[in-house]
């Protein structure tokens, strides 16, 4: 019996290795096929604005939108933030934020001090919307087309390179289709 106990670390490790192997192939950077080309999940959540007006999925219809999942506890979001500001201010990209599992007060301060690139920010304090979306970790960004359908998902920081290489082509293509609304 005592000798068998010595095998426990090995078994735990093998189990772990199995998970890690699987994790390699559920590549988090590609959207699970279940959500690609499906409408954005239905939600009804408070906004981060002064009046905390309730926001829902109609927010995402009519214009090509980037939906950016962020939180003040996420270091990468700090890195990404200035670039989002530039996208919104200089290139006029429409960005909607999802403030994910965060302290609402801190989130407000963050936007007040660092600038607000978001047309509107949905407060997802419980993380329910995040689960529906399959949020892996902040930051994450979804490209949603005029009909409110998810067309692309990017995990991790958006910078100039990511924008030029993967996001902008999709956004331009979606904007091109159907003309201005």
């Amino acid at each position: 019996m005592k000798r068998l106990k010595l095998f426990i670390p090995l078994l735990v490790f093998l189990l772990l290795a199995g998970f890690l192997y699987q994790a390699l192939y559920q590549n988090p950077r590609t959207l699970p096929s279940a959500l690609l080309n499906k409408p954005f999940p239905v939600f009804s959540l408070p906004g981060l604005g002064e009046n905390q007006k309730t926001l829902d999925a109609s927010l995402l219809k009519g214009e090509v939108t980037l939906v950016n999942v962020w939180a003040t506890w996420c270091p990468s979001c700090h890195v990404e933030h200035p670039f989002l500001l530039r996208l919104a201010q200089q290139q006029g990209v429409r960005i909607v934020g999802i403030n994910y599992k965060d302290d609402t007060q801190q989130a407000k301060q963050w936007l007040a001090k660092l600038g607000n690139p978001y047309q509107a920010t949905v407060v997802d304090a419980s993380g329910d919307l995040g689960i529906e979306l399959g949020v892996y970790g902040a930051p994450e960004t979804y490209v949603v087309d005029r009909q409110g359908v998810i067309r692309y998902k990017h995990i991790g920081v958006i910078d100039e390179r990511v924008w030029q290489e993967s996001l902008q082509p999709i956004v331009s293509q979606l904007q091109g289709k159907g003309g201005p609304s």
């Binding site: 994790a23 559920q26 949020v135 892996y136 902040a138």
Partner: peptide, 9 residues
Amino acid sequence: EALSGSKLS
């Protein structure tokens, strides 16, 4: 994710 398919952080 491996156990339940849900994504959490």
